[in-house]
Simulated scan of single mutants.
Amino acid sequence: MSIAKLVRLLTVALIVAGMPVLAAAQTPSAPQTAALDKVSFGTNWVAQAEHGGFFQAVADGTYKRYGLDVTIVPGGPNVNNRILMISGKIDFFMSANSLQTFDAVTNNIPTVAVASMFQKEPQVLLAHPEANVKTLEDLKPLTLFISKEGIVSYFQWLKTEYGFDENKVKPYTFNPQPFLADKKSAMQGYVSSEPFTVEKQGGFKPSIVLIADYGFNSYSTLIETRRALAESKPDLVQRFVDASIVGWYTYIYGDNSAGNAMIKKLNPEMTDDLLKFSVEKMKEYGIVDSGDTLKDGIGAMSDARMTSFFDKMVKAGVVRADIDYRKGYTLRFVNKGVGLNLRPKN
């Protein structure tokens, strides 16, 4: 992406909060305030369907009904919104997964995860139909295209739990061409995006292995804020979490045209076909709504789940065993059943 294009995306982001309400979503009773509290929320990449619930909550007025005037600041290759959040320039940040929660504790960063919009890490490994991949184990003989970030995180778990061989790994540079050219290879990706790219460029439907379904039970797309803000303004944090949850229910199950319109305005590379594909895959694989959310609502987290993932990452040598990982998150703002009435009955 060119710098000029990135600048245009970020410029548009600064006026997100001022956009008109495009649609109304069915919501539970929400607090009403005379004056809106200004809130800024930074994502970790450019606008896309994987951020859809947040954009939906802005575009259809959900945040406003919760007394919030929310500005979404998209991330990008040269934007570090997490640093901006830590330094107080923005209020909330969309962290990638639970490893960032543990990293904050390790480095004494005073942040806290307050909700998890994704119950499953959307990380997948894609293979050619000719490789006849049905399970995670079937990937072991293949060449694996994995990014440097993947090597130091989930691949260490694959080595420890499933005996994968690092000698089989080649660098993944977010270009699918090496994978497309080698039928005895597999490529990392997100279930909601890379399979679409492979279908368009390669002309075939890849086999999909979601590592979350094999025990990589990290939370993903967490809402993170400064610990001081969570402690000093719990009502504001609660309203932001609740409205975001409602935004995600609407985006996944309701009329998401308002959120998609905003996403496309911020990032013209997002086509209607890709947005539709992404939502369908998030629903099919239970990325947003599965497991504990069926009872506790989207955004759910639990101590048992955090402990389980922490233990796995310690065993894999990814995180230190001596950190108090519980300092990195709180259950205060989730598991309240917010938005459950918005899930389709069938």
Rank of each mutant, 00 (worst) to 15 (best):
T106H: 12
T106S: 15
T106E: 15
N107C: 07
N107Q: 10
N107F: 10
N108R: 14
N108S: 10
N108G: 10
I109K: 07
I109G: 12
P110A: 06
T111H: 05
T111Y: 01
V112K: 05
V112Q: 08
V112R: 01
A113N: 13
A113L: 11
A113R: 09
V114F: 06
V114R: 08
A115L: 04
A115F: 05
S116P: 01
S116M: 05
F118E: 03
F118W: 05
Q119N: 13
Q119H: 08
Q119A: 06
E121Y: 12
Q123M: 15
V124D: 04
V124R: 13
V124H: 02
L125N: 04
L125V: 02
A127H: 10
H128T: 14
P129L: 12
E130P: 06
A131V: 08
A131Q: 03
N132F: 00
V133C: 03
V133Q: 00
V133R: 05
V133E: 01
K134A: 02
T135L: 14
T135V: 11
L136W: 01
L136P: 05
E137D: 14
D138Q: 09
L139N: 13
L139M: 07
K140C: 08
P141W: 04
P141S: 13
P141R: 12
P141H: 13
P141Q: 09
L142M: 14
L142V: 11
L142H: 13
T143H: 08
T143I: 07
T143N: 13
L144D: 06
L144I: 08
L144T: 00
L144S: 04
I146A: 04
I146M: 01
S147W: 01
S147A: 11
G150Y: 01
G150W: 00
I151V: 15
V152Q: 10
V152N: 06
S153N: 11
S153W: 03
Y154G: 06
Q156D: 02
W157D: 06
W157N: 04
L158R: 00
K159P: 02
K159M: 09
K159V: 11
E161R: 14
Y162M: 03
Y162R: 03
Y162S: 05
G163C: 12
F164K: 01
F164P: 04
E166Q: 06
E166S: 09
N167L: 09
K168T: 11
K168A: 07
K170R: 14
P171I: 13
P171G: 07
P171S: 08
P171K: 02
Y172N: 01
N175D: 15
N175F: 07
N175S: 14
N175W: 10
P176Y: 15
P176M: 15
P176G: 12
P176H: 15
P176C: 15
Q177T: 15
P178D: 09
P178S: 03
F179D: 11
L180W: 15
L180T: 13
D182R: 01
K183E: 10
K183I: 02
K183L: 01
A186C: 14
M187T: 02
Q188T: 03
Q188W: 00
V191R: 00
V191D: 01
S192D: 11
S193G: 12
